[in-house]
Simulated scan of single mutants.
Amino acid sequence: MKTVLKTFAAALLFGVAAMGVAKADQVKIGVAAEPYPPFTSPDATGKWVGWEIDFIDAVCAEEKLDCVITPVAWDGIIPALTTKKIDLIVSSMSITDERKKTIDFSDKYYNTLPAIIGPKGQKFGATPDDLKGKVLGVQVSTTHAVYAKKHFTGAQEIKEYQTQDEANQDLAAGRIDAVEADSIALVEYLKSDQGKACCDLKGMVAPDDEVLGPGIGAGVRKEDTALKETVNAGIKAIRASGKYNEITKKYFDFDIYGG
């Protein structure tokens, strides 16, 4: 009996120690290395700020994780995760079946539709007929690029950019006719001096669950089930406590969590 108790006590101590290491280990939070307001962007000092930064800070604080923001080029962010250069992707990444072939995701933490913006003074909407013959800008390796190639086949060209900012710059300069991206990010751009001067919102695109998925989640390696469960617990806890809504109200006057 004493041997059994000793064995049990040793196993319990080992389990507690293992949990302690997991909580103490630094978790590298991968974000796209480009401004993507109001979700993620560096301030004048180089510190990363925005809704998603506040969100993941709250999750990490709730679960007592030592998290550090780690900027990575967007088109290399999944390889950075799978090769363990980062541990979690928190960069407005849509949960899709295609991505789930390579990585796993936490529960959804927000969900908004894409939109189309274009030059002021030009009247068109966000349907395939509206985009027929136009040059449409999208960011490479995004659900917006996949959506555009599937639905806007009548466009003159689907032009892909390394960053969303580059697409917006080309639209403002008149080199392309329209841009598709997340509606919140585009509305934020339209509030900027450049956005207000050049462009306006043309409309929201039609839903497509197969391409756009059920929302935005944190990307995690398939084998990191403990980290995934910890992040899910953190998301659930900050939503239940009201912290999620408190953070959201700093940036938005509507619920971005979605149905």
Rank of each mutant, 00 (worst) to 15 (best):
K6H: 05
T7H: 01
F8I: 15
A9D: 00
A10R: 01
A18W: 14
E34M: 05
P35K: 10
Y36K: 07
P38C: 15
D43K: 13
A44I: 12
G46H: 03
G46Y: 04
V49T: 15
E52Y: 07
I53R: 07
D54H: 14
V59M: 01
A61D: 12
A61K: 15
E62S: 12
E63D: 02
D66R: 09
T70Y: 15
A73R: 05
I78N: 01
T82Q: 07
T82A: 10
K84G: 11
I86K: 11
I89M: 09
S92D: 03
I95D: 00
R99F: 11
T102V: 15
T102M: 11
I103A: 08
F105N: 10
F105V: 10
Y110G: 06
P114L: 07
I116S: 04
I116F: 14
I117H: 08
G121Q: 05
T127W: 06
P128I: 07
L131C: 02
L131E: 03
K132F: 02
K134T: 08
H144Q: 12
A145H: 04
A145C: 04
V146H: 10
K150P: 03
K150F: 06
H151T: 10
H151N: 11
T153Y: 06
G154M: 09
A155F: 04
K159I: 05
Y161F: 13
D165G: 02
N168G: 04
N168Q: 09
Q169K: 05
D170N: 08
L171R: 06
A173S: 03
R175C: 11
A178H: 00
E180L: 03
E180F: 01
I184G: 01
Y189M: 10
K191S: 14
K196L: 01
K196A: 08
A197I: 07
A197L: 05
C199W: 09
L201H: 02
G203F: 04
M204R: 05
P207G: 15
D208T: 05
D209W: 02
E210T: 11
G213K: 04
I216N: 00
A218Q: 06
A218P: 01
E223C: 05
V231T: 07
I235M: 05
I235V: 12
I238Y: 06
Y244N: 01
Y244W: 14
E246L: 10
I247E: 10
K249V: 01
Y251Q: 13
Y257K: 06
Y257Q: 15
